[in-house]
Lab assay of single mutants.
Amino acid sequence: MTYRVRIENADGEVVTIEISADELREKGLTLEELLPPNARIVEVEEVEP
């Protein structure tokens, strides 16, 4: 499974990243732990691999 994640950074700019569930598991991280300081998740969407 892959996630498309929209993130708002500290400057108010919204960027989109895609990350797979396998990648998260391998790194032992959650989506929140990948965020840079002062950023927030705006939207998470599951996409087909």
Rank of each mutant, 00 (worst) to 15 (best):
P49S: 14
T2H: 14
T2L: 15
R6M: 10
R40V: 11
E18H: 12
E45L: 14
N9I: 14
V15R: 08
R40M: 07
I41M: 04
L35M: 07
L29N: 04
E32F: 11
D11Q: 11
K27H: 06
E33S: 10
L35R: 02
E32Y: 13
L31K: 01
P49L: 14
I17P: 00
E46M: 15
M1H: 08
R40I: 12
L34N: 02
G12I: 00
R25T: 08
L31R: 01
G28Q: 07
I17W: 14
E26H: 12
P36C: 03
E33R: 05
N38G: 15
I19G: 00
G12V: 00
T16K: 03
E18N: 09
P37C: 05
R4W: 06
E33G: 07
D11L: 10
E23I: 10
G12F: 03
V15K: 07
D22L: 13
Y3A: 00
G28C: 06
V47E: 03
D11I: 07
E33H: 07
V14F: 13
G28Y: 04
L29Y: 06
E33M: 13
I17E: 01
N38I: 02
P37Q: 08
E8P: 01
P49K: 11
G12C: 04
N38P: 04
E32K: 10
S20K: 09
T30W: 03
E8Q: 13
A10V: 10
D22H: 11
V15Y: 15
A21R: 08
V15G: 04
R40G: 02
L31M: 07
T30F: 04
G28I: 03
L34V: 10
G12M: 03
V42A: 02
L35F: 06
L35P: 01
R25P: 01
E18F: 15
E18V: 14
P37G: 05
I19D: 00
N9F: 15
R25M: 11
I7P: 00
G12L: 03
P36A: 05
L31Y: 02
L31T: 00
V14K: 06
T30N: 06
V44F: 06
R6W: 14
V42T: 04
G28H: 08
E33D: 15
D11Y: 10
D22Y: 13
P37E: 10
K27T: 12
M1R: 11
A21W: 12
N9D: 08
I41E: 01
E43C: 14
I19T: 02
N38V: 02
R40W: 14
L24D: 00
E46V: 15
T2A: 09
N38T: 05
